[in-house]
Design a protein around this nucleic acid. Structure first.
Lengths: 185, 185
DNA sequence: TTATAACTGGACGCGCTGTCCACTTATTCC
DNA sequence: GGAATAAGTGGACAGCGCGTCCAGTTATAA
């Protein structure tokens, strides 16, 4: 069981990290920043978290879990029951919403290669693969990563902040993709 | 005009960088590594190149230019003349081939956010956007970045080296995507 | 040949990383 | 209630890469 002081510090660290991620470029946040902001020594951080992305992932985890629960057991079209194209479109819409709401955290946790190492990616893969298989796509496995690529945090950030597209516009684009790829909606 | 010693060192640097990129993880190559391998001081490097990705981009540039020339003026379906779906498929195939052949350089130059800052990305965007527009896609601009996402170096590296997919399998997947998205081939 | 400008290399300070160890604090057992 | 024990803590430390600076060197032009 966790000691009282450890609990207190864990909360301090997570709150400090959340503040930093949202108040500056998430990719520039360092372990030292978080320790200083939390008023805690650096070794205390390293005891629990090996690096910054892991801290961001811990903050992001609960939101991802909520979506995952809906995908597994929620009402259609997010949950099971709807035709493949609609399920894929609903998944895309929900993922874009997640990216929009927690972009700083996602950029901190799943930028670049770290995205694939994150546990969540495996879940999204399994989900999309199941949809594609149900729709009768030939090589569902290879198609999965292709269809997940547009959801990369870097891509979404580029579309939103550099190109200036709205959340709705990006959402429409990925829904268009879903409808185009899966036949007989 | 460029001084003789500067030319000599520029060649030394580029050759050293190419060796390093292909003999170790490209993302772990540092400016100091390149300077040491080239037998040159660090300031000499910084005079010409601000960072490692720029050096990788210089090495990659000629190969990208060759493909760009074919896209503009080469024979169809890579060049103009073929129907949109075939042109997109040909573009995908060529890009995957480029990734396969020069993956170390691409990973060094265009990983993560740097991909969008690279000049080449603008070219690929313009090219795909033209194809989509010709095919009558509604919001061709937003669709472009979505369709370019699967070509991100990180994604290809993951498919090839982590998942173990063959070049042909990934190529088939993106061609499937092209065919699905563009109507009446 | 000399003057000028470009080029070069090593040294420097900075910030971040990850580890280590001595100290402190909470919990457990008597 | 008071030790014994284990967990938690913070600051110090060495290492590494970055980006800059300056004094010395070398090529080109007058």
């Amino acid at each position: 069981m966790e000691r009282a002081d450890a609990t207190r510090n864990r909360v301090l660290v997570l709150e400090a990290a959340r503040r930093l991620f949202t108040s500056q470029d998430p990719r520039s946040v360092t372990m030292e920043d978080i320790a200083r902001e939390a008023g805690v020594g650096r070794a205390t951080l390293y005891r629990r978290y090996p690096d910054v992305p892991t801290i961001a992932a811990a903050l992001l985890g609960e939101h991802e879990s909520a979506l995952q629960a809906e995908l597994i057991g929620g009402p259609p079209p997010l949950g099971p029951g709807a035709p493949p194209a609609q399920r894929l479109a609903a998944f895309y819409t929900a993922m874009i919403a997640l990216l929009e709401e927690h972009l700083p955290l996602v950029l901190g946790a799943e930028t670049g290669e770290a995205r694939f190492r994150a546990g969540a990616y495996g879940f999204w893969r399994a989900h999309v693969k199941a949809i594609l298989t149900e729709a009768g796509v030939k090589d569902a496995l290879a198609a999965t990563d292709v269809l997940l690529a547009p959801l990369a945090p870097d891509v979404y950030r580029y579309q939103r902040q550099v190109l200036g597209y709205s959340q709705a516009r990006v959402t429409r684009a990925v829904i268009w993709l879903a409808q185009a790829c899966l036949p007989d909606d």
